[in-house]
Design a binder for these strands. Structure first.
Lengths: 267, 267
DNA sequence: CGCGTCTTTGAGAGGATTCAACGTGTGTGG
DNA sequence: CCACACACGTTGAATCCTCTCAAAGACGCG
């Protein structure tokens, strides 16, 4: 029997759930900016659903690296929010009056191209912020959870006011945004300079990091989406690498045996 | 005799200079975010080379919408800088310790793809900021002036300190960055969802604005670069529109006669 | 087991770049 | 003043990359 899944279904699915890989991957990736990551990086192993006030403050402090009272002010303005896997935080076209701060999990900004194709624009990991900031605005993307997601939501106006009145908040915000700008520029550069296979290769290197291993091995359909290509292309690209002995792949791990060579191939 | 210019040469050239169109175009385009532009928008008609202190303060205030003393602090930390057309502000790979605030003119972030092809990642108009912000960092793009350009340069560390100590600065910075993030997302969306001709059409609409006229008519090679395609493709796309009577083109102006129809074609 | 998902491979189609050629306008230098 | 180089635009043909379509196998799960 043939495979009848339309790409649309696949796309919708792949951005969701089950592989733990994707979550980890994106979480790892979303903060690969030049500046070091803030000390705190979400903690999905905690079993509880709601954060204690103290934790909330700690979160604020580590995200904004701010004083106690600033954290308190933020904590008070914030509302905790849980979104199930595949849940939609906000829809394209909505007039948003909020920002969302990712506490745990990963949120993705995606667009449905006119042909129904789903396109990934950005992903937000723990400590990152999305929504409408300088003022309320219509959203140009959907924001969906790709795994269980816990957020802090805060009114745009309140956040702006806080930023204006409290230096720590403003500064923290600017750092947050600068980092996002940075990674977005990277992604943009990759998308426009590299060929489809090149983007796949680059993503492999990024996911592998210094250890040159991806464990568990990546789900190709998901990887394809993040670099804006098709599973077929990704599959072919990687098959090529395996054939040439540049990467080795087992059920448990994908290992890059010749990272230098792979890096050369990208250019 | 044939034309022997390699594409590389062309690319290098086109990003420069002579057509006044390109400068205006980008200047118009770089602030098309949802939030209204700050009240002040550069003034190239002023004949002098150096800004008075008072003007400098005014610039700061309108960019950061901040108090007098914050503006004074910024003004003191800043060094004025003039870059000639085609001049390079900073090079890819440089370890930058500065941020630059565009006072007048347009700066572009560009990358040379491995094949020597020049690619435009972003452009910064008056009131926009680029460089390394949260901390010193290696630049991933060249920054070049595309027309006479005057900048304020400020040490990254100084700016960060100011942001942390002065709420107005931090807030202003966050607004600046949020706006850039916004437009970058837009650009990204356009680049990934649209076809090459679609991007050309979209750019036409954007340049034309409400008046539906582009005056003087766009330099195709430059337009092609901004939407990341070739002059040939751009030329074909527009020739098509002209043939179908959707736009009219003379030496002096390009006019969109059927903006609705054109908008339809983009999707 | 049937179903859905993921992967892989081949073949075909389409879009966009590349190459080639030519016309035009502009500025430079002999 | 006249080449000449250079930039820009236009058009056609060839080429290549990438997506789409089609088919089939593997795995996990209710």
């Amino acid at each position: 029997m043939l495979c009848l899944i339309s790409d649309k279904t696949l796309a919708r699915r792949a951005s969701g759930s089950p592989g733990h890989f994707f979550g980890d991957a994106v979480r790892e990736g979303c903060c690969q900016s030049t500046s070091p990551v803030i000390g705190w990086t979400g903690n999905s192993s905690r079993g509880m659903n709601s954060l204690l006030d103290a934790e909330r403050l700690a979160v604020m402090q580590s995200v904004f690296s701010c004083s106690d009272d600033a954290a308190a002010a933020l904590g008070a303005a914030v509302r905790e929010l849980s979104v199930p896997a595949k849940g939609v935080v906000a829809r394209q076209g909505d007039l948003a009056h909020h920002c969302w701060l990712v506490v745990d999990g990963v949120a993705q900004a995606q667009i449905n191209g006119p042909d129904g194709q789903l396109i990934l624009l950005a992903s937000y990991g723990p400590g990152e912020l999305f929504g409408s900031y300088p003022g309320p605005a219509a959203l140009r993307t959907d924001f969906v959870a790709m795994g269980a997601l816990t957020l802090f939501s805060i009114k745009t106006t309140v956040l702006a006011d806080l930023a204006r009145s409290n230096a720590d908040v403003g500064h923290g915000l600017s750092v947050l945004l600068a980092r996002q700008l940075d990674t977005l520029l990277d992604r943009m550069a990759a998308r426009t300079t590299l060929s489809a296979t090149g983007r796949v290769y680059a993503e492999l290197l990024r996911l592998a990091g210094d250890s040159n291993r991806i464990e568990p091995p990546p789900v190709l359909s998901a990887l394809a989406l993040t670099v804006h290509t098709t599973r077929e292309t990704a599959s072919r690209a990687i098959a090529n690498l395996v054939r040439r002995g540049i990467v080795r792949r087992t059920d448990a791990v994908l290992e890059i045996t010749a990272p230098r060579l792979l890096a050369e191939l990208i250019a």
